[in-house]
Simulated scan of single mutants.
Amino acid sequence: MLTKKQHELLCFIAERLGEDGISPSFEEMKEALDLKSKSGVHRLIEALVERGFIRRLPNRARALEVLKMPERVDAKRGKAAKRGDVAPLSPPSATQRMPEPANDVIEIPLHGRIAAGVPIEAMEGSQMLPVPAALLGSGEHYALEVSGDSMVEAGILDGDYALIRKTESARDGEIVVALIDGHDATLKYFRREGAMVRLDPANRSYDPQRYRPDQVQVQGRLSGLLRRY
């Protein structure tokens, strides 16, 4: 039997995966469940993993897969499922994009370096980066080499390749590529703070950056990471 918070988190993850194929960040999960810290989110996820409701996908940033959902009450037939009963997820429809086989490789544009510290210029380039297709979801992607250490607490290290899904919009708590004043780009958590846009690092040694909305252009959301050893 799931606790109320476990059930709420499972439904939230499933809803977000159904919307865009990307699992929510720990910060988004914390806010959605009105928890005081991310450690509470970690405990809930561990419990859901142990009970077989979700699993982590290896080598992907914040990648979770929902394996099953609590069985719902069938109101039309008047049959209520027992608490704790579970049902497998329905097979995906033909219109849903399924992950590519892990051994398939796709080449995506590699557009220079991006700061995970203070903004630096993100250079356009003609290089291509081979990426396992399983690391990419739907949509158009490009890659940027990470420079700096301000996102280390999110598991993003200097020299990593950030795999970015192109988009011009973002939800609070998502990690985005933000173009500042039309020429400097940075990788940060995106937040709205009153009339301002706040870009948060994931390193306590760095301070948040605040800009007017007209100064910030979202150029993509983090989809995955590629690390070479």
Results as ranks from 00 to 15, higher is better:
Leu187Ala: 04
Ser205Tyr: 13
Lys188Gly: 02
Ala202Ile: 02
Glu193Gly: 03
Ile180Val: 14
Phe190Met: 02
Leu179Met: 09
Arg192Gln: 11
Gly182Phe: 12
Asp184Leu: 15
Asp207Asn: 12
Leu179Phe: 09
Asp181Glu: 15
Ile180Gly: 00
His183Pro: 02
Arg191Ile: 05
His183Leu: 12
Ser205Pro: 03
Ala185Arg: 01
Lys188Tyr: 05
Pro201Phe: 08
Arg191Asp: 09
Ala202Val: 03
Arg198Ala: 15
Met196Asn: 10
Arg192Met: 07
Val197Leu: 13
Arg191Gln: 13
Tyr189Ser: 04
Asn203Phe: 07
Ala178Asn: 01
Ala195Ile: 14
Arg204Ser: 09
Ala195Tyr: 12
Asn203Val: 08
Pro201Ala: 08
Leu199Met: 13
Asp200Ile: 10
Ala178His: 00
Asp200Gln: 09
Gly182Cys: 13
Asp200Ser: 13
Gly194Asp: 07
Asp200His: 06
Ala202Phe: 04
Leu179His: 02
Pro208Cys: 06
Asp207Val: 05
Asp181Cys: 13
Leu199Ala: 03
Ala185Met: 12
Asp207Lys: 09
Phe190Ala: 03
Leu179Asp: 01
Arg191Val: 03
Asp200Met: 13
Ala185Pro: 01
Gly182Ile: 08
Pro208Met: 07
Asp181Met: 15
Pro201Ser: 11
Leu179Lys: 01
Pro201His: 05
Arg192Gly: 04
Leu199Arg: 03
Arg204Leu: 15
Leu199Val: 03
Arg191Pro: 01
Ala178Trp: 01
Phe190Thr: 00
Leu187Pro: 03
Phe190Asp: 00
Arg192His: 10
Arg198Ser: 12
Met196Tyr: 12
Asn203Met: 04
Ala185Cys: 15
Pro201Cys: 06
Gly194Ser: 07
Tyr189Asp: 00
Gly182Met: 11
Ile180Asp: 01
Asp200Arg: 02
Arg191Lys: 11
Tyr189Gly: 01
Glu193Tyr: 13
Arg191Ala: 08
Thr186Glu: 12
Leu187Lys: 03
Ser205Leu: 15
Arg192Trp: 09
Arg198Pro: 02
Asp181Gln: 15
Ala195Pro: 00
Ala185Ile: 10
Ala195Glu: 14
Lys188Ala: 06
Arg198Thr: 09
Lys188Cys: 07
Ala195Phe: 13
His183Tyr: 15
Ala202Cys: 08
Tyr189Val: 00
Leu199Lys: 02
Leu199His: 00
Arg204Asn: 10
Arg204Glu: 13
Gly194Ile: 08
Ala178Lys: 02
Leu187Met: 07
Pro208Ile: 06
Asn203Ala: 05
His183Lys: 04
Ala195Lys: 12
Asn203Tyr: 07
Leu187Cys: 05
Ser205Gln: 08
Ser205Thr: 06
Arg204His: 10
Arg204Met: 15
Val197Pro: 00
Phe190Cys: 02
Glu193Lys: 06
Asp207Met: 12
Tyr206Val: 06
Asp184Cys: 11
Met196Ile: 07
Asp200Tyr: 12
Arg191Gly: 03
Pro208Ala: 11
Leu199Cys: 04
Thr186Asn: 10
Asp200Gly: 05
Met196Ser: 09
Gly194Cys: 08
Tyr206Met: 11
Asp184Asn: 13
Arg191His: 12
Asp181Thr: 06
Leu179Asn: 01
Lys188Trp: 09
Gly182Val: 05
